[in-house]
Nucleic acid binder design. Sequence first.
DNA 1: GATAAAATATGATTTAAATCATATTTAAGA
DNA 2: TCTTAAATATGATTTAAATCATATTTTATC
Lengths: 143, 143
Amino acid sequence: MFSNSSKYAIKAVLFLAIHSDENNKIMVKDIADPINVPQAYIAKLLQELAKHKLISSTRGPKGGFFLSQDDKQGNVLDIIKVIDDDKKLNSCMLSLKFCNASNPCPIHHLVSQPRDLIINNLKSKTILELAIHVENGTSRLPL
Amino acid sequence: MFSNSSKYAIKAVLFLAIHSDENNKIMVKDIADPINVPQAYIAKLLQELAKHKLISSTRGPKGGFFLSQDDKQGNVLDIIKVIDDDKKLNSCMLSLKFCNASNPCPIHHLVSQPRDLIINNLKSKTILELAIHVENGTSRLPL
DNA sequence: GATAAAATATGATTTAAATCATATTTAAGA
DNA sequence: TCTTAAATATGATTTAAATCATATTTTATC
């Protein structure tokens, strides 16, 4: 469905949503461990997310990554789009070019509707909302 | 969601469902082209499917691959299980070990239900039923 | 300004998936 | 029973994803 890289990126963003803000920046080395992702790898992903303005960062001493109020209004699908490229999400499950609702491949109707549901769900909730669920115990993040 | 190999295997099985039976065996070289998959690659996948009894085959002259009546009662999920290994399908979207309905990761509820729907759909229809849809024009296979 | 601490840019390495190649085994038909 | 046509078994190569490494740039602080 989506890559390891996207999973890591989602975990990192949620971690930042919970633990950071404009005056609480977090360095790569303090993110990698708790979300259980190699430091050099998550660093690259965070840089990519920052470049696309999904997360914020400042360099130099006292620098680090964080989520602005604005960043926290983003959603999970945005992350996947940046890291993976969303063609993968939307394209035919058999990779057939022509396939769509009116000209479906043999498994189109088995997959299409629930798949769209997932996509819509992933963009329906803000990062902030997801983070709040973690904070109030409705869901869990670590490991 | 699932690998290229699984996609190829599904296409091949559906192709066989439409064009083969006990007295109409099809050789690898006559499958590869119409489903648009490299011959050596699909050969390996077909061998794997045959080994797991999802399709049938006979060697030697006049040999080839085919779907028995029994094979046609199989479903798409069986194919994915053999080629990919279904852990990938069932596991947490963030790859978190503990994640389940009562101890959910932050995106569990966004994904879990529609994902289960896809899985159930993929096992709800037989290969034969899917092939019939292609034959009567309800769906399309080629390319 | 000089120093140090952070992200950034870039690219190298490793690993796994996809693809290709070929020797071996089986079975039909002459 | 010999030849030939097919799948099978096995492994090599290529490609892309995942992972690691490091030189460069920016910015706070002294």
